[in-house]
């Protein structure tokens, strides 16, 4: 949380979200993270948002996401038969097998949330880069924050590994293109979420004044 004092676009005070301590913002060396002295929570980072890089990463994620979803993540050979599974194959099979919650949670956490995150970021970044603040900017930023904990691409990646190991004793398992897609997507999303979204609020405030 940041407290606005005066008309400056950059807030001067920072309040710790975990213990309510109040701090005066001071400049940090590049890449550094300011932490609360009382409880150790992260206050802010000096990772200057470079809109071009961030937008490039976001658009790349969108493409990688399409590939990861379209292609099988694992191939399995058993007794001369070969089968593969995509994320959607797994979701639909679970649904048909009567475990709707498993299907819904998988679709939401591996597909819907990451997709919305990427789409909302593009919606925010494109106008900001052109020097405009998009309509519904505040709602979009709130949505980004809400969606973050439910986005679980990295857990799915580990899930693919565990499934492969479980089957490896009885069948021949080989990775599919979708697996590499999810691996790359995990990496890209980690890069994107390492940016401090508060910087976007600052940028938007600069544009509006």
């Amino acid at each position: 949380m940041a407290v606005q004092t005066g008309d400056d676009s950059k807030p001067e005070l920072v309040i710790c979200e975990h213990c309510d301590s109040v701090y005066q913002r001071s400049p940090l060396p590049a890449g550094a993270v300011a932490r609360c002295l009382q409880c150790g929570a992260e206050l802010y980072r000096n990772r200057r948002v470079d809109l071009d890089t961030m937008l490039a990463l976001t658009v790349t994620s969108m493409i990688v996401m399409a590939i990861a979803n379209a292609y099988p993540v694992v191939w399995m050979d058993l007794g001369g038969q070969s089968r593969s599974v995509t994320l959607w194959g797994a979701v639909l099979s679970s649904y048909d097998a009567g475990v709707g919650l498993v299907a819904v949670v998988s679709a939401a956490c591996i597909f819907l949330m990451p997709l919305l995150q990427i789409a909302v970021l593009i919606y925010v970044l494109v106008p900001l880069r052109a020097g405009r603040v998009p309509q519904y900017f505040a709602s979009a930023m709130h949505a980004l924050r809400r969606m973050q904990p439910w986005s679980m691409v990295e857990v799915f990646l580990l899930g693919i590994l565990v499934s492969a190991v479980k089957l490896a004793a009885d069948a021949a398992i080989s990775p599919g293109i979708g697996l590499w897609g999810f691996a790359l997507l995990t990496y890209l999303l980690t890069l994107i979420t390492s940016y401090d979204l508060h910087e976007l609020w600052d940028l938007a405030a600069e544009e509006q004044s």
Partner: peptide
């Protein structure tokens, strides 16, 4: 907390994959 979803995804994957 969200890493606990691991087994849920494993079940979904195996159900989708193993139909011989």
């Amino acid at each position: 907390g969200h890493w606990s979803m691991l087994d849920v995804f494993v079940v979904a994957l195996l159900v989708g994959l193993v139909h011989f």
